[in-house]
Design a protein around this nucleic acid. Structure first.
Length: 373
RNA sequence: GGGUAGGUUCCCGAGCGGUCAAAGGGAGCAGACUGUAAAUCUGCCGCCUCCGGCUUCGGUGGUUCGAAUCCACCCCUGCCCA
């Protein structure tokens, strides 16, 4: 019996957006979905029940980080990631491909794999597609990402081509090494900012995509229009019957633009990271709650928000917490920011059901400024 | 009363004749953050008509081409003795 399935429940008449239902061993995910990131088997500062309360249906964890600490064998011995971290909903593990990009100074890539010098103790580790599959299998997430090479923004065509070609080569090895039917392997499309490479990449990737498709290497510093152009180029090539996951995207405007272009899944550290740094996401844009202007502002972060932070605390209080370096400040803002993005996906779904997503976008931008106030 | 150590820009604290508007922290203010080496990082932080000028280093007066830095007296603090 198949443990995974995906069906489209509704397609928006105004755009490529759709509402879908992804069945996994740990539950059903309704898309479009925003997935909070818990790299080291925790969404920073939040307990699982806090994360659940935001409405999160699925969270991420990271293969590379958990391989280094505590070690995938330990997680396996604990009974898998779900048990280890006490999260009973679906989990997706990223492959460590993003670390090929973000830890570029500490790593060397060959066709065989990527050799990392650990950022923790300097010890040398070689990640190969086979090892990544072994680790992800031990961790036991519902969705596992293929090991890919994410090239930075600004590389030339030749370098971008090499990266996507290597990603395809690694994908085949991941595909062959992957055995566990309880885990869905998502391949990742690369191609940097070149339309021809993006298209070639997706065409060569598709034969290995059974349950879902990752789109990587975007939102790495390029202008919004460039990212949208890449998504536009890809859109004609998506199979209808599987979810498309735009990796690493998590600002409200990017999510909306993604959904309009047929994306179903998103993840991002942004809401939790900027939370810890004192910023709140709102319909008006980002609010730097840490700033002086909020010291006597006794309103909630966002009027009308149903999150725990907005229901119980004021901007002035949260600003104070951030200001005196109390962990509760980052926690409350994390709760709010995740809830904000999930509420956004709920509003988007509503608009899709009503076939008015482009109208919704217009209304959205009337309020939303890159930086509020 | 005697001795002794000191008084530096919001705070702590370097500086001890020019390269000093004065190191370094802290606080404060602002910015960045998008598959988390991030509760991190960056910038500003005396005043102005700001490629230049002005006023600062307890106070006053001196020495010197030039003083936060040297001298004299005064004021104030800590410690020790009486």
């Amino acid at each position: 019996m198949e443990q995974f399935s995906f069906r489209v429940k509704k397609v928006c008449a105004q755009s490529g957006a759709r509402i879908g239902e992804l069945v996994t061993p740990h539950g059903v995910i309704e898309t479009p979905v925003f997935m909070p990131v818990g790299t080291r088997a925790t969404v920073k500062s939040l307990a699982p029940r806090d994360v659940k309360e935001t409405g999160a249906q699925i969270i991420l964890a990271n293969t590379y980080h958990l391989y280094l600490r505590p070690g995938h064998k330990i997680v396996q011995a604990a009974g898998g990631l779900h048990k280890f971290m006490a999260w009973d909903r679906p989990i997706l593990t990223d492959s460590g491909g993003f670390q090929v990009f973000s830890l570029s100074k500490l790593r060397k890539i060959t066709d065989e794999g990527a050799v990392f010098s650990s950022h923790i103790d300097g010890s040398v580790h070689k990640l190969t597609p086979e090892l990544v599959m072994e680790i992800e299998n031990a961790l036991g997430a519902d969705i596992i990402m293929a090991f890919d090479e994410c090239a930075p923004y600004g590389v030339d065509h030749k370098t971008a081509k090499e990266a996507y070609k290597r990603t395809i080569y690694w994908l085949k090895r991941c595909y062959n090494a992957h055995q566990n039917p309880a885990q869905a392997l998502f391949p990742i499309v690369q191609g940097n900012m070149y339309e021809d490479l993006r298209i070639a990449s997706i065409q060569e990737t598709l034969p290995y995509a059974k349950y879902g498709l990752g789109i990587g290497g975007l939102s790495v510093g390029e202008p919004t229009e460039v990212m949208c152009k890449m998504l536009d180029a890809l859109q004609p090539y998506y199979p209808e019957n599987m979810p498309r996951y735009l990796m690493g995207v998590g600002s409200a405007d990017y999510i909306l633009e993604g959904v309009i272009r047929g994306i179903d899944m998103f993840d991002c550290v942004l809401p939790t990271r900027i939370a810890r740094n004192g910023t709140a996401m709102t319909a008006q844009g980002n609010l730097t709650i840490r700033n002086n202007q909020f010291k006597e502002d006794f309103r909630p972060i966002e009027e009308g928000c149903d999150c725990y932070a907005c229901q119980n605390f004021t901007r002035a209080y949260i600003r104070h917490l951030i200001n005196v370096d109390e962990i509760l400040g980052g926690k409350l803002l994390s709760i709010h920011n995740i809830r904000y993005l999930i509420r956004l996906t709920e509003q988007i779904k509503e608009a899709i059901y009503q076939d008015r997503l482009l109208d919704f976008r217009k209304e959205f931008y009337q309020k939303y400024k890159k930086s509020a106030e």
